[in-house]
Computed example of a mutant assay.
Amino acid sequence: MRKKDCFYLGKIAKKFSFKGEVLAYLDTDEPYLYENLESVFVERNKDLVPFFIERSSIHKNDFLRIKFEDIDSEEEADQVMGCAIYLPLSLLPKLEGNKFYFHEIVGFKAVDERLGEIGIMQGVNDSNAQPLFEILNGEKQILVPMVDEFLVKVDRENKQIILKTPPGLVDLYLED
């Protein structure tokens, strides 16, 4: 499985028992959706390796307590500590309306109600406190705060993000 065909679910954070159980931190608002997985892909040496799950349960809201097949001791659990876990994109629940996955809008046209088409969505930068839409307009990168007030519509059919930005925000980038 290729990483680009998967989404990041979380990270194996700590050992749970001497029998090889681990706790995986789940980077999701709805961890219970992933409580009954049969398998996950574990990133080891930059490759995604399938790991089959004997049993799992939610632990303290954000963690998934996992017993993998063939990991039966603390020493074996040590080998997956800190590893990221992934699932195929096909397992993501479908979102509707203005809810979207960051990877889903890459390549969409960014259209401002006032300015018209302003570029192509390159992604979302969520490394700061305020996530930003990254829009490419020729050689220029336009950054627009990802706030509900600016997002009018996610038009999946026409592959567009319709925005209503305040005067001056995008205009600043478009000036030569």
Rank of each mutant, 00 (worst) to 15 (best):
E69S: 03
S90W: 00
Q141A: 11
L163H: 06
K67P: 02
L143C: 09
L33S: 12
L132T: 07
D126Y: 09
P88G: 08
V170A: 13
D78K: 04
E76W: 02
E139A: 11
E139D: 13
G107D: 03
L143Q: 11
K60S: 10
D70C: 06
R156K: 11
L26S: 02
I162Q: 06
L95S: 12
V144Q: 00
K109M: 09
L89Y: 03
V49P: 00
S73D: 09
M121V: 15
E74F: 12
L33A: 11
M146G: 00
I71S: 00
A129L: 15
K3E: 07
K94N: 03
A84G: 05
F51T: 01
Y101W: 11
K14S: 12
E75G: 00
N98K: 01
F52P: 02
S57V: 05
L64W: 02
L64Q: 03
F102K: 05
L163C: 13
N61F: 12
R114K: 13
V144K: 01
L115H: 05
L26H: 05
E54Y: 03
Q141V: 12
D29C: 12
L172M: 11
N98W: 03
P50I: 11
L163N: 10
I120E: 08
K46C: 13
Y32S: 07
S73Q: 05
Y101T: 14
P93D: 07
F102Q: 05
K11D: 01
E149F: 12
I85K: 00
Q122D: 14
K164A: 14
D112C: 11
D176V: 14
D126N: 10
M146C: 07
P88A: 13
E69V: 00
F108R: 12
D70E: 15
K11P: 02
N61G: 00
Y173R: 05
Y86A: 00
V22I: 13
L115N: 02
V124Y: 03
A24F: 10
F16I: 09
P93S: 08
V124F: 00
D70M: 06
G20P: 04
G168R: 06
E74C: 03
I118M: 07
Y25C: 08
G20N: 02
E134F: 09
T28H: 07
E134N: 14
R65Y: 07
N36A: 13
H103P: 03
G138E: 07
E30G: 09
L151R: 13
D29N: 14
K164N: 15
I71H: 02
E43C: 06
E157F: 04
D78E: 10
F150W: 10
R65N: 15
V147M: 12
S90G: 03
V154F: 00
E30K: 13
V170M: 13
